[in-house]
């Protein structure tokens, strides 16, 4: 079988992240596909009313709900809760990055300076530790090399002496 090129597909039940418009930043599920560029979405648990949305205005997530085409809100909600989509998404790296971005936007100039300084000091510690480890490992390597050389040299000298 051929290798899968697309991991996420636009399909009925696919949970999407709305990236544009009034409901930007919320999750919803694709309930129906209207045409090549639009789909019917619904997010009863995220307070997104059923509506047509362009596929360009949404990102696809990894989650797919087991629902039928044009599934009613009640069963959709049930499926959503069973799959624990909101919980799963909150745990994901994606949502954590979003939160981080929001935090970064709120940071003031002085805050940014403090973060920069903290980063500096952290990097300093890491660098120092790394250098120490590097040094010590080099030392051991050098010692080992020396030992090897000595071990290989001695017999040579002996041989030479014997020859003489």
């Amino acid at each position: 079988m051929a290798k899968k090129v697309f991991r996420k597909l636009i399909q009925i039940g696919r949970v999407v992240f709305i990236n544009n418009g009034r409901y930007k930043g919320r999750l919803a599920a694709i309930v129906d596909i209207i045409d090549g560029s639009r789909g019917l979405i619904d997010g009863p648990c995220t307070r997104v009313p059923r509506q047509a949305l362009r596929f360009a205005d949404m990102y696809l997530t990894n989650y797919v709900l087991k629902i039928n085409r044009g599934q009613r809100e009640k069963l959709l909600r049930q499926a959503w809760n069973e799959a624990e989509i909101t919980k799963q998404f909150a745990k994901s790296r994606w949502s954590q990055n979003l939160k981080k971005g929001k935090l970064r936007d709120q940071m003031t100039d002085y805050c940014k300076y403090k973060v920069g300084r903290a980063k500096q000091s952290r990097n300093k510690i890491v660098r120092n530790l790394f250098n120490q480890m590097k040094k010590s490992s080099l030392k051991t390597q050098r010692k080992a090399l020396l030992k090897k050389r000595l071990a290989t040299k001695k017999p040579k000298q002996k041989v030479a002496a014997e020859k003489k």
Partner: peptide
């Protein structure tokens, strides 16, 4: 210590810093 350091360093716009979006 931080405040002295803050006053001692210059402000500059770096990559991805848009003044209209910044919060001072």
């Amino acid at each position: 210590k931080m405040v002295f350091g803050y006053l001692g360093t210059m402000f500059a716009l770096r990559k991805g810093m848009y003044p209209h979006r910044l919060k001072f």
